[in-house]
Every structure is written in C-alpha cells, then in structure tokens.
Amino acid sequence: HNLTITQGKLFFHYNPKLCLSEIHKMEEVSGTKGRQERNDIALKTNGDQASCENELLKFSYIRTSFDKILLRWEPYWPPDFRDLLGFMLFYKEAPYQNVTEFDGQDACGSNSWTVVDIDPPLRSNDPKSQNHPGWLMRGLKPWTQYAIFVKTLVTFSDERRTYGAKSDIIYVQTDATNPSVPLDPISVSNSSSQIILKWKPPSDPNGNITHYLVFWERQAEDSELFELDYCLKGLKLPSRTWSPPFESEDSQKHNQSEYEDSAGECCSCPKTDSQILKELEESSFRKTFEDYLHNVVFVPRKTSSGTGAEDPRPSRKRRSLGDVGNVTVAVPTVAAFPNTSSTSVPTSPEEHRPFEKVVNKESLVISGLRHFTGYRIELQACNQDTPEERCSVAAYVSARTMPEAKADDIVGPVTHEIFENNVVHLMWQEPKEPNGLIVLYEVSYRRYGDEELHLCVSRKHFALERGCRLRGLSPGNYSVRIRATSLAGNGSWTEPTYFYVTDYLDVPSNIA
C-alpha cells in the first residue's frame, strides 16, 4: 500500500525493539523526510534493546553428524571492536523451508527459537588472519532439518551509529543413524509349514526405512522333555500350542467401542483428552525405555581390526524358502538304536541362519518350516543398504507352526516275539517326523474274553527296548493296539495285532 503524509511529521519514542533503520525507511515511504526535528525521533529510546544489523554474515563451514552440527561463519568486528559482546545463534526444527525470524513471537518477546549466546573469538592483530567464530550444536535429532541463523550482539553506541551483522536463515539436516526397533511384532501360524509375521514401523526411523531383515531359527525343545518319565503317576503330560491366527481386521481397528449394538453396526467412541494424553505418555515412556535398553543392555560386537582377528559373527547367506525346513542338525536320541526319531534339535552355532529381506511392506510369510516346531524370529529395521547396512537392534518374537495331521501315527506293522515265561516283546517304529517329539506310547492289549488293559511306555523305555515287553501273560489269544502321544496330543491307534500265548508248562520236552 502507498502511504503519503502531505502535512505533519513523524514522532517515535520509547520503541526499544524498533531499529532506527526501520524508522528511516518509514520517513522515505511516507514522504516526511526532512520535516522531523532532532528530538522527534529519539536516538536513545528507539532500538536500544534490539540488534540492528546492516551487514550480512556468511557461514564459512558446515559439518553434520547424526546428532551434531558444527558451524563456522566469517569474522565480524565493528569499528570499535570492544562493542562486540558476542553472537546469538538461533535454531529450531523446520520440516519445511518457510521459516521466518519472527515465527511464534508474542507480545512478551518470546519466540519459538532456541538461542545460544556465543563469546567472540580472540581478536588477531592481523586483519587478514582473524579467527572464524563458530559453535557445535549438540543433542539434535537424527535425520531432522533445522533452520539456523546467527547475528551479532553489540553494545549501545553513544554516537548512535547503527552497526551489526546478521546471516540469512539456512537449512541444515542432520545425518541418518540406526533406527529404533520395529514396533509390535506379531507372529502367527496359518499352516503346519508357515508363519505369518506382521509389525509396525519404528517410532524413530532416523532416516528413510529402506528394508527390513527377518531372521528365523528353529528352537530346540526343553531338555526336561527328553529326561522326564511322563508315565509316572502324578506327572502331567506336557503340551505345546501353536500360535493362533490373526483376529479379523475389524476387531483390530483402534479407537473402536468394545460393545456392539445388537441391531447392527455401531460407531466408534472418540477417545477423551485424558485417554489420548495417557497414550502419549505411555508411548514416550516406551521410547525412553527402549533407548535405555539399547544403550545399557546391548553391547556392540567388536569388529575385526587390522591384526587379522576374525569377526566372530557368522556370515549372512541367503537361502531359498524351500530350504528352511531342514535348518537344524538332527541327532538321534540314543545312538545305539537307529530307529528312534531325530527330534532332539541342538543347533550348531556355526550354522548360517536363513533370512529374508523385506522391502516396502511390514509383513512376511515364512514358508518351508517344520510342522509343530518353535521358531525364534528376529526382526531388524534398516535405513541404508549400501555401502553397508545400517540397521536397528533386533526385536524378537516366537511362534510355533501348526501340527501336521497323521504325523504322530505309527507307520509300519507292530511285530512281536514270544519268549519263555510268557513274555512277549512288542516292537514298532517311532514316527519319523512327529509333531514336536514323542513323549510316550500307549499300549492297549486284551486277552479274548477279558477286559482291555493299558500300559504306558516312556520315551526312554522305548529307546532301550525298541518297544516294550509284556510279562506274566496268561495263555490265550491276544490283540494289541499302540498309539503315540506327542507334544500336540495323541496320534491314531494302530491296526490290531494278534498273537497267541501258550502255557509254557505244557511245552513238550526233548528229553527222552
């Protein structure tokens, strides 16, 4: 807008934040220059609390790290170098490059900038070799853009010569660093050979998330399962459950009422301010606690030095998902009996873990797994792929695949051998790939016309006998059925096997 004052003059007093240069501009645009008398524009009460600059400061050096910015700028000295009290560095987070010096300023003089007072450097006698002032900004957020400017702080001049310097606002972004852990990993099994893994992005990506790394490792069953005799009275049979499938998407929606109208769909109840505040506090606490764990609990591995020492970490090797089922080394339970199943799973520490690289999504279907087997899954978020990966501390989750139908069934015939004193040795093959492992066998036998009897055969007993022995049988026709019990439950009964026990007292003698 054009402003013209045809008559009258300007009068400025007691404006401590208004620089004289701005008042002189007002004289020019209003056409009143030359009308004012000496005392109409006070030299001592206008701009006496402001830094009124008329020179431009330029930054000469900028260096960044993930949490620091090192700045240096060209030296500046007023005509009387004693008038320079120091520099004021202003900075704040700036997602967009549209910041002005006066953003967030209120009537009390406060604003949204963080201000650092910096002492002037030592003055050199040689004007050509003056030290460049600077400042190291610490405690910054990774991968965050900051708006920065600097200006001088000078003393009051009796001659009211307006001098000083100020830089333009520059924008500097800190470097990326390792992201925080992925949030809320959930693993479920939808079949006997697959596990579905879902997660949420890290709360602090500290860069642009480029991919996720998912490692999985087959877990050995508890050692007590191999040692305890679950045929003993009072000892509860062990059981394991597989990871249940995901709930429906509708039930997972946030901010939804727990109660549904019987007449149909209901609208979600909005969260109160107290609920939102509580969630923010919980989120802040979780982030602080995660940072504490990362800094205190997890110790970084030592990389190899120039002395030739090897990095103890196993090298990563990509495998196809079809090879995942046989990740671990199978060892027989008892070496003397080769027909026992290889369900003991000690994992070799030198073995390469299978892994998958996930790009542009937060889910993965891990296939080719062994049925009813526990897996430990390790999830890392990465925001750099080359020249070397920059990934987060791992988040861990466990899951067990679903049982395989008929995996616990005894394959092959049940054979028998009759000894003296009416002892019958029953023999059968253990299931080759049971659900988890076989903890015991149930032997059901009966003599024709009598009630059915049951015998429990422990895992250890089966390994020693290759089956079991029935003792003290009365003469007669017998039928026997056997079924295995694994961590997933009972298998199917075998087809009945028949044998006849004679009275050993009636056996004919070869003595003449």
Rank of each mutant, 00 (worst) to 15 (best):
N206H: 13
G207E: 02
N208K: 15
T210S: 03
H211K: 05
Y212L: 02
L213H: 05
V214D: 00
V214I: 15
W216P: 07
W216S: 02
E221P: 05
E221W: 02
D222S: 08
L225Y: 14
L225E: 05
L225F: 03
F226P: 08
L228D: 15
D229F: 15
D229A: 14
Y230R: 12
Y230P: 05
L232F: 11
K233V: 11
G234I: 15
G234D: 09
L237C: 12
P238M: 12
S239L: 13
S239W: 11
S239F: 02
R240F: 13
T241A: 11
W242Y: 06
P244V: 08
P244Y: 09
P245R: 07
P245E: 07
F246A: 07
E247K: 13
S248V: 08
Q252R: 11
K253V: 02
H254I: 14
N255E: 07
N255K: 04
S257G: 08
Y259R: 05
Y259P: 10
S262P: 12
A263P: 14
G264A: 15
C267T: 13
C267L: 05
C267P: 05
S268C: 02
C269T: 14
P270Y: 09
P270S: 11
K271I: 10
K271L: 09
T272D: 04
Q275P: 06
I276E: 06
E279A: 08
E281T: 06
E281M: 05
E282P: 15
S283V: 10
S284E: 04
R286P: 09
R286H: 07
K287H: 15
K287W: 15
T288N: 07
F289P: 06
E290T: 07
N295L: 07
N295S: 10
V296W: 13
V296G: 07
F298R: 11
S304Q: 05
G306Q: 10
G308H: 07
G308V: 09
A309M: 15
A309Y: 11
E310K: 02
R313Y: 11
R313E: 14
R313P: 14
R316G: 02
R316T: 08
K317I: 13
R318F: 14
R318Q: 04
R319F: 14
S320H: 08
S320A: 11
S320R: 11
G322I: 10
D323S: 05
V324C: 01
N326L: 13
V327C: 10
T328K: 12
V329D: 04
P332I: 10
V334E: 03
A335I: 14
F337Y: 09
P338D: 07
P338G: 10
N339E: 09
T340V: 07
T340K: 09
S341I: 05
S342R: 14
S344A: 12
S344V: 09
E351A: 04
R353D: 08
R353M: 14
P354A: 05
P354S: 07
E356F: 07
E356P: 14
V358P: 12
N360G: 07
N360Y: 08
K361T: 08
S363C: 11
L364V: 04
I366M: 08
H371A: 07
H371L: 06
F372I: 02
T373D: 03
G374N: 11
G374A: 03
I377C: 07
C382I: 01
N383L: 11
N383C: 13
D385K: 13
E388V: 09
E388A: 10
R390W: 12
S392N: 00
S392K: 01
V393I: 04
A394E: 05
A394L: 07
S398K: 12
S398Y: 04
T401H: 00
M402K: 04
M402N: 15
E404Q: 14
A405R: 15
K406F: 14
D409A: 05
V414F: 04
V414H: 02
T415N: 04
H416Q: 14
H416F: 10
E417T: 12
I418H: 04
N422L: 12
V423A: 14
V423P: 02
V424Y: 07
W428F: 09
Q429R: 02
E430T: 11
P431M: 02
K432Q: 04
E433C: 03
P434H: 06
N435M: 00
G436S: 09
L437V: 05
L437H: 04
I438F: 02
L440G: 04
L440M: 14
V443T: 02
V443E: 00
S444G: 12
R447V: 08
Y448A: 08
G449F: 14
D450L: 06
D450K: 09
E451S: 14
E451L: 15
H454V: 10
L455P: 01
C456T: 02
V457N: 09
S458H: 02
K460P: 07
H461W: 14
F462Q: 10
A463I: 08
L464V: 12
E465W: 15
E465P: 02
E465S: 14
R466T: 07
R466P: 06
C468S: 05
L470K: 00
L470S: 00
R471G: 08
G472S: 10
G472L: 07
S474C: 15
S474V: 12
P475I: 10
P475D: 04
G476K: 00
Y478L: 00
S479D: 02
S479N: 02
V480K: 01
V480C: 15
R481W: 04
R481T: 01
R483T: 01
A484H: 00
T485D: 12
T485C: 14
A488D: 05
G489D: 07
W493S: 05
T494R: 02
P496I: 06
P496S: 08
F499H: 01
F499Y: 02
T502A: 14
D503Q: 05
D503S: 11
D503K: 01
Y504I: 07
L505M: 05
L505I: 15
D506Q: 15
V507N: 04
S509Q: 15
N510S: 07
